[in-house]
């Protein structure tokens, strides 16, 4: 239960084409993250799967059944919204019970499932509260509780953590991952945050301007980005790109080096790029140096936290030759 397959799905709003043509196969039980910059069509794609928008053309199969034209209520999917979308006039208990009431489940079953979900999500003592009396994290858990009670074919998450503060976001990330391991239900998770994508996903779909740039496991994307866009999007801080004559030396129209793939020296080295430190961001565990490299522009370098560099220091950078990414004129990886 829970395979999702899109073939040649297209979506336009009037004249504006949001999704030119997407085909995807999501396996049963998989945790797939749609990631991309805002406006890339990731939320639209999720809403197409949910049935909240309809496709301009193409088909959507759920468990092999054509659901392209089915209304959301009939698709058997559950969705967690960015705003949580809890029913403000209902208690936590009624919120979680709502999908079961809609499915006309008997009262005992409803009570039992709500209790179970509440226990799993640590909500038991809040069951009689209204959503407005809950914290952001608790609201998020209620939204998840509402999703799990109906035992859906798949869960859809639309940027569910973006309204939470940083510490809570890390917690909820773990909780959702654990939930997935426990339930083993297919999950599709939309985010613009590549850290969430890397940490949670079995496989990631990188979207840009409505097109799938790459679909693969997190490490695949990190190690073998298909193109310059994926290379730049996955990994933090961003990959440094160099083009022009320096790239031509590597037989590419552009090369990319991740901040963590440099060796750093304070004395001149043969073949090293010479630069001056602009800003040094010290995080304790790591230090990010923003270096103005002569003739190549600003680069970000990751070093360990014990290194102390200051503004204006001269540094010499040597990219790890095994980890230089090469791109052709169209931005495709060579």
């Amino acid at each position: 239960m829970g395979s999702i397959s899109l073939s040649h799905v297209k979506k336009s709003f009037g004249e504006v084409q949001i999704i030119p043509d997407i085909s995807l196969d999501i396996k049963e039980g998989e945790f797939v993250v749609f990631v991309g910059p805002s406006g890339c069509g990731k939320s639209t794609l999720l809403r197409l799967i949910a049935g909240l928008e309809d496709t301009t053309s193409g088909t959507i199969l759920l468990d092999g059944v054509d659901m392209t034209k089915a209304p959301p209520a009939r698709r058997g999917l559950a969705m967690v919204f960015q705003s949580y979308a809890l029913y403000p006039h209902m208690t936590v208990r009624d919120n979680i019970a709502f999908p079961l009431k809609m499915a006309k489940a008997p009262k005992e079953v409803i009570d039992q499932k709500v209790e179970y979900a509440a226990r799993t999500l640590n909500l038991s003592s809040y069951l009689d509260r209204r959503p407005r009396a809950l914290s952001g994290g608790q609201r998020q858990r209620v939204a998840i509780g509402r999703a799990i009670v109906r035992e859906p074919k798949a869960f859809l998450f639309d940027e569910p953590l973006s309204n939470l503060d940083a510490a809570l976001r890390v917690n909820m990330r773990l909780e959702i991952t654990e939930l997935h391991q426990q339930l083993k239900t297919t999950m599709i998770y939309v985010t613009h945050d590549q850290v969430e994508a890397m940490t949670m996903a079995d496989r990631i779909v990188v979207l840009n301007a409505g097109r799938v740039e790459q679909f693969g496991t997190p490490l695949d994307l990190y190690k073998k980005p298909a193109n310059r866009f994926v290379a730049g999007f996955i990994g933090s801080p961003r990959m440094n790109f160099v083009d022009g004559p320096e790239a031509a030396r590597y037989n590419a129209s552009a090369i990319g080096v991740r901040p963590e793939h440099f060796s750093l020296a304070t004395t001149p080295m043969p073949g090293a790029w010479k630069g001056k430190v602009g800003v040094a961001e010290q995080l304790g565990s790591d230090t990010f140096l923003h270096v103005h490299v002569d003739g190549l522009g600003l680069m970000t370098i990751r070093t360990d936290g014990d290194q102390t560099f200051g503004h204006g220091d001269d540094v010499y950078l040597t990219p790890d030759p095994a980890r230089i990414y090469r791109f052709d004129a169209a931005g495709l990886a060579l």
Partner: peptide, 8 residues
């Protein structure tokens, strides 16, 4: 922004 069904 809605489905054809909603519009109907």
């Amino acid at each position: 922004m809605a489905t054809a069904q909603t519009r109907t």
